[in-house]
Write a protein that binds this DNA or RNA. Sequence first.
DNA 1: TTATCAATCCGTCAAATTAACGGAATAAAA
DNA 2: TTTTATTCCGTTAATTTGACGGATTGATAA
Lengths: 258, 258
Amino acid sequence: MHSQEELLDFIKNGHKQYLPHVSIDPVIFGYSDQKLKILLLKWKGLEGWGLPGGYIKREEPISQAANRILEERTGLKNVFLQQFYTFGDSHYRTHEQSLKEITQEQGEDILKGSWLFERTLSISYFSLVDHSKVNVTTDFFTYDYHWFGIDEIPELLFEQNEVVDKALTTLRLQLYHQPIGSNLLPEKFTLPEIHSLYETILDKKLDQRNFLRKMMTLGIIKKLDEQRSIGAHRSPFLYQFEKENYEEALKQGIIHAN
Amino acid sequence: MHSQEELLDFIKNGHKQYLPHVSIDPVIFGYSDQKLKILLLKWKGLEGWGLPGGYIKREEPISQAANRILEERTGLKNVFLQQFYTFGDSHYRTHEQSLKEITQEQGEDILKGSWLFERTLSISYFSLVDHSKVNVTTDFFTYDYHWFGIDEIPELLFEQNEVVDKALTTLRLQLYHQPIGSNLLPEKFTLPEIHSLYETILDKKLDQRNFLRKMMTLGIIKKLDEQRSIGAHRSPFLYQFEKENYEEALKQGIIHAN
DNA sequence: TTATCAATCCGTCAAATTAACGGAATAAAA
DNA sequence: TTTTATTCCGTTAATTTGACGGATTGATAA
């Protein structure tokens, strides 16, 4: 994947191409088997789990950087990806230990003063992706990955549990106001599908009829007059997202009137 | 205030003390005469208006940096200050033009390669302060300040109108869920005072009785059994914030049940 | 062909919340 | 004691939310 030469070049010269002191760390939620999971990578040297991450190119808009980094790790383009917070309080992340391991055989000279040792702020994004479409590629610092159910997240490196928690809170808060489901469901989906998705994300039973009413009232989805033929039972109607309406819902919906 | 020597040292050596590429830019809302205003500074050289800003010290947590920067410009400590977004898309802010003016007499040599010329991401916070308690101090780059009503914000430097807009939207969204008013009102305040504050911030009439009921239901304020003696009229009761309840309200209140 | 099964679909009523509304009480000054 | 400006409060209608179960459909099995 990445040759040792590339790695050494990255350590020595990465700061010429990337902004130092700032990384982008997406919390990637995936959905499969009615479970909500997040993608974590296993660090070389540190032998612990952490979020995928990457650096911003010197001339690259940060939203573009976030999309690029997501694509580099997952292969996915054009998915919902939203910034939610920038961490830089207790979070003095560096790659020191990790790099010592990786570059052991080279001696430690090359590490002296590397940009990767410096304090790094973390601009965090979250994303929801279709688990089955993801093709994970590890990066220089990592060698394995795993999708962890959100109730089985281990203690993470770099104090990233806080990041994950805030991502989840934000996801749930915005669920009715951002086109969050649109990467997880097929273009046309059934009511039970989206219903189950929302129940999973909120970790809560939602009455089916009330759920439908709410989604229709907010204008988030619209009913088509097609049905899908599922195996053995009654054919469910298909629905589609109405993306244009989401942000409206946000503004109208949360600023409590009067 | 700042000597020319200090400025030159800051230009040449600031990157040893501060993280380059990242600034903190608080949108400081002030309230007076029933108007909502923001504090803008006038840039030397560029002759335009922009947000106050500052850099993060190399070992300083960012929330602490934000508070320090706010204090440096306004003299205020311990006020409500909240991060809301990190801008870095179209926002390639540098101090190049400004610095050329300021350091004119020194020749331009010192500017070569200054850390201040590099691209800077902006971690943005907003704050609400009591206009009358603020003691504005300009910084190296600025020489004047003004409180602009939010409906009379000029075109800002560094594409900061976007920042201000997002700050205002966020402020309004969170008004019922964060202890936002607590820096703007005295410890004990009357119902008409807080009512008028909320009307001003939301730019909207709020029915007085319904407003009271809502604040009480959310547990944001509590009624004391003291009254204040105002000049000529009926004595209003006093109220106090119940800060502990705000964040509760956030979690319980926005995640729409069922 | 019919019965069975598993899943989807839908409507009503009660409870809670929100929105609209005006008149009585108070404190000082005239 | 009257006037004036201001605070205080309660009720009703409309809307939204929450709870609830029975009828329909599409295929498979008898």
